[in-house]
């Protein structure tokens, strides 16, 4: 039994709920290969018409930012308030802006 441990890779599952929306991460599953992952994802995450399209991707293929460097990593955008429209005062009687 221990021989089969962890031999099936982990996949992350993304579902597009309907046309016009992005695929959204819904969970993960183990499968022997890509095709099996897709079939299992259909059975597991779309039993009630939750989606019109599925993506599965091996978890080890995802490169993620580290939670430990959360602050420094995202710091460059932190002090740029001028990127937001609210940074610019416009008189209230100017229309459509």
């Amino acid at each position: 039994m221990s021989g089969e441990r962890a031999s099936w890779p982990l996949y992350e599952v993304f579902v597009r709920p309907r046309r016009g929306l992005n695929h959204v991460h819904v969970g993960s599953l183990h499968a022997a290969d890509d095709k099996m992952a897709l079939l299992a994802a259909r059975d597991l995450y779309t039993r009630r018409n939750e989606g019109v399209s599925l993506w599965v991707v091996r978890s080890d293929a995802i490169t993620a930012s580290s939670p430990d460097e959360q602050d420094p990593f995202f710091a460059p955008s932190g002090d740029k308030v001028y990127r937001h429209p609210t940074f610019y005062p416009i008189p209230e009687d100017v229309p459509h802006i």
């Binding site: 089969e4 099936w8 499968a31 022997a32 290969d33």
Partner: peptide, 15 residues
């Protein structure tokens, strides 16, 4: 179910 898991692994390894 062991044989099913083994078969799926073997198939995946062959691809």
């Amino acid at each position: 179910g062991a044989w099913v898991r083994e078969a799926a692994s073997a198939y995946a390894a062959k691809q």
